[in-house]
Structure formats: structure tokens, C-alpha cells
Amino acid sequence: MLKDITIGQYYPGRSVIHRCDPRLKLIATIAYIVVLFVAANPLGIGLSLLLLAVLYRVAKIPGKLILRSLKPIVPIVIFTAVLNLFFVTGEGEPLVHFWVFNIYAEGVRYAILLAVRVCALIAGTSLLTYTTSPIVLTDAIENLLRPLNKVHFPVHELAMMMTIALRFIPTLIEETEKIMNAQKARGAMLDTGKFTQRIKALVPILIPLFISAFRRADELAMAMECRCYHGGEGRTRLKQLRFTATDGRCALVLALALAVIVSTRFFVPGLV
């Protein structure tokens, strides 16, 4: 069950998208999210989905993984969609009317648009984490945030913290599973019983987990100090980020595609 968590789950591959400069991918993902909100019309959203499908195809990521990344947000999507369905009011006659609720055509359209948009948003960001290993990604973040150093923002420290956090997510998940199995072997009931019982059943998992997380942090700090880690000052990298000609072409294609999607805003009536 824990294995379904897809945060920072890298799906190894050799596609163009995998090898692309992570800075480009990061910016493109942010641009994609913005476009999803700017091009808020059926054609725009449709084209955005098409673009995403093409990118997933190029990256050779199986469709199964997209569904898996969407699974955890299904309740949120349904909740917001239902809220919109009931609370967006439109002109004209309501489609359905009962008790205090009125459902308008606008509400239906808005709910569908919102659901699709949130799904596209998650699938889009998932593509970034599927094709970029977390370490490379934080490298890109550090690189992009470097100008903030000027205002004494601790960019390197932030990036290092993110790297460590991301690096230890799989380790902690593995650790949690081990502890869960150990307690299950002693008859722990983790997925049955009343809510309060389930919360109580978590204690034998959480205490050992916290203790081991602190122990790990301690050991890691010690290991880093032994290797003379002293922060970002004067630190060089083994792998330099390079923006290649291929990256340039990718950027151009993406920019064009996103521009086309945005332009739909001007000749297709929007919904918002």
C-alpha cells in the first residue's frame, strides 16, 4: 500500500525527455501549469491533454503509472467537482432542481473542466518526477534559485535539505514497511478495527520509525562532517548542468505548443 506513493518516484529510461536539461523540464512544467489556467476553454484543455499524452508517449512511461499518480487525488477531485456542481450559478433555468439545490449547465461544465484540469496538473508534474531523478531535480532548483543568493537566501542549504529529504523518502518507506511487517508478525491489526483502534495500532509503528529516523539523521550528519562538508561555499559539482542544442530544440517545440494552447483563449469562448 505504501508502494503506491509516487512522490519522487523515478521511472528510469533513455528517452529525449529523460535526458533533457532538468532546468528546462522544471520551467516547462511550471509553464504548463500556468497554461492550464490561462487556456480555460474546452479546446485549450483538450490540446493540453493531447500535449501531455504525446510527452508521456515520447518518454515511454506506461499509462498504468499515470493512473497510479492520479489515484491519491481522486477524493479531492470528486469533492471539488461536486462543490462546483452545486454552487456555481448560471443564467437561465437550472438543469436540475431539488430542495435547496440547483444545478446549472455552467456548474456541470465548470465541474468537468476543473476535474480534468486538476488531473492534467498532477499528471504533468508526475511526468517531471517520472523522468527526472530527485537528485538531478534539486540540482536544477538550486541552479535556478541561485540569483536569490544575492539577498542572502540560503539556496544551497535549502537544496541540500530537499535532496536529503527526497533521498530518504524511499528509505523511510522501506523502513516503515519493515517495522509494519515486524509488528504484523506479532499480530498487530493495522487495517481492521475502529478508527480509534487503528490510530492506536500506529503507535508501535511510529515510535520505532521516529527513533530510526533520528538515528539516521545523526549518522548522516556525522558522515557529512567526516567528509568536511561545510555548506555550499566553494563547492563544485561532479555533474555540471549543460543546456545543449537538443535542449534548445525541445524548448522551442514546447514553447510553440504552449503558445498555440494559450492562443485558443482568444477565439474560443472561455468558461471563466
Binding site: N181, A182, Q183, K184, A185, R186, G187, P204, P208, I211
Partner: peptide, 28 residues
């Protein structure tokens, strides 16, 4: 089956959580 087959995992000391050893042994 879990009560029929007792499994001691690798490095089992990391699964201890109770306040006293006696209470931890009593967990199963």
C-alpha cells in the same frame, strides 16, 4: 498463522517501542 509461525526479522531490536521491556514482550 502469524501466531502459529513466529517470525523474528533481521535486526529485530528496531521494532521495540514500549516503555518497558516487559510491556514490549507482552505486545504479541
Amino acid at each position: 498463522f502469524r501466531f502459529l509461525v513466529g517470525l523474528v526479522m533481521q535486526y529485530p531490536e528496531y521494532q521495540l517501542f514500549e516503555e518497558t521491556c516487559a510491556r514490549d514482550i507482552a505486545y504479541g
